[in-house]
Computed example of a mutant assay.
Amino acid sequence: MTNKIALVTGGSRGLGRSTAFALAQKGLAVVITYHSQQEQAAAVVAQIEQNGGQAAALQLDTGVTASFAAFAEQLTAVLTEKWQRQNFDFLVNNAGFGLEAGFAETTEAQFDSLMNVHFKGVYFLTQTLLPLLADQGGIVNVSSGLTRFTTPGGSAYAAMKGAIEVLSRYLAKELGPRGIRVNTVAPGLMATDFGGGAAKDNDQLRGFIGSATTLGRIGEAEDVSGVIAALCTDELKWVDAQRIEASGGMFL
């Protein structure tokens, strides 16, 4: 896999960071994007390189579609300078943020911010990068276990992820002739800093999630990132248009 390159949005922390490491361990070169955590992104790149891998980091706000064309140009320059390539092989649409608000209390501004990052951003970033995505490559879109089970306060966030799951099936259909596989990975609640880090720092919440999970504990980023990385290898080359939930068996 040493000649393969993956792009991971939101790769400076949490699941994106863990995914970048998992991909590098499988021998892929990795480009991560970050919104504002430049130092954290640089640390991810440095750690991958210290372990013998290859990586780069680029700034990107996935909620601003007007910036995507310029980002594609920057990405092309990095691919050319660092790897002497004009394209990359796998796109992992991971960047995002959490929002917990009841349906009656969710504002239009909150809804729009979720839409811009979690659905509109994914839709048009993927469209913009499509000419740079190599044939026989793949796309992994990060969804959420909340598209299957429901918890109060997740209506807007889960609705965006539901849209991503539908979009992924359409992308698989339309990109199949190019040999591009498209799948979604739906994590359960993980002990990361996502959503303010409540699941990471709250022992009571961790205990509740563990009690509601068949494997008896809350998930870690590494539990999910390995699934994403595997979808970017030939090991799962016959898996397409699928929703894979990696939740440890939450709320069965």
Results as ranks from 00 to 15, higher is better:
Arg85Asn: 08
Gly226Ala: 09
Leu7Phe: 01
Gly138Val: 07
Ala186Gln: 04
Gly14Val: 06
Tyr123Trp: 14
Glu220Tyr: 03
Lys173Cys: 08
His118Arg: 14
Met160Lys: 10
Lys26His: 12
Met115Leu: 15
Val31Arg: 11
Phe88Arg: 03
Ala77Ser: 13
Thr214Leu: 10
Ala42Asn: 12
Gly154Tyr: 07
Leu7Ile: 03
Glu174His: 10
Glu39Met: 03
Arg217Val: 02
Leu58Glu: 01
Leu205Cys: 05
Gln110Asp: 12
Gln204Asp: 14
Ala241Leu: 07
Gln47Thr: 09
Ala43Glu: 13
Phe68Leu: 02
Leu60Pro: 15
Gly195Thr: 12
Ile139Lys: 02
Gly63Trp: 01
Ile228Gly: 11
Gln59Asn: 13
Val142Cys: 09
Ala29Arg: 08
Ala191Lys: 04
Gln84Ala: 15
Glu220Phe: 02
Ala159Pro: 09
Gln242Leu: 04
Arg169Lys: 15
Thr65His: 07
Leu58Gln: 06
Thr147Glu: 01
Val182Asn: 12
Tyr170Gln: 15
Met160Gly: 10
Arg243Gln: 13
Val30Tyr: 01
Leu146Gly: 14
Val140Gln: 07
Thr33Leu: 04
Gly145Glu: 01
Ala229Glu: 10
Arg169His: 10
Asn141Lys: 01
Val185Asn: 11
Gly154Ser: 13
Ile139Ala: 03
Met250Leu: 15
Asp234His: 07
Asn141Ala: 05
Pro177Gln: 02
Pro177His: 02
Ser18Cys: 06
Met190Gln: 12
Thr9Pro: 08
Asn116Phe: 04
Thr76Gln: 05
Glu220Lys: 13
Leu15His: 08
Arg206Gln: 14
Asp201Thr: 12
Gln86Val: 13
Gly145Met: 01
Ala29Cys: 05
Thr233Lys: 04
Arg85Ser: 15
Ala230Val: 06
Val166Gly: 14
Asn93Lys: 04
Phe21Asp: 08
Ile164Asp: 01
Arg169Gln: 15
Leu146Asp: 11
Leu58Met: 03
Glu105Gln: 15
Phe251Arg: 05
Asn51Gln: 15
Val182Arg: 11
Phe21Gln: 12
Ser168His: 07
Tyr34Met: 07
Val224Phe: 02
Thr80Gln: 10
Leu215Asp: 00
Ala43Cys: 00
Asn94Gly: 12
Cys232Leu: 10
Thr213Tyr: 00
Ser36Val: 11
Thr233Trp: 02
Ala69Cys: 04
Gly188Asp: 06
Gly176Asp: 08
Ala70Ile: 03
Asp61Met: 09
Thr107His: 14
Gly137Leu: 00
Asp201Ile: 00
Lys120Cys: 10
Ser225Glu: 11
Leu215His: 02
Leu7Thr: 01
Asp203Ile: 10
Lys237Glu: 12
Gln204Trp: 01
Ala66Ile: 00
Ala246Ile: 05
Glu81Cys: 03
Leu175Thr: 06
Gln204Cys: 00
Phe208Tyr: 14
Gly196Ser: 05
Ile180Gln: 14
Ala66Thr: 13
Ala22Val: 03
Ile139Met: 04
Leu125Ile: 12
Gly27Asp: 08
Ser247Val: 04
Gly121Ala: 13
Gly153Tyr: 08
Val185Arg: 05
Leu58Pro: 15
Thr128Glu: 15
Ala163His: 08
Lys82Asp: 10
Ala57Ser: 13
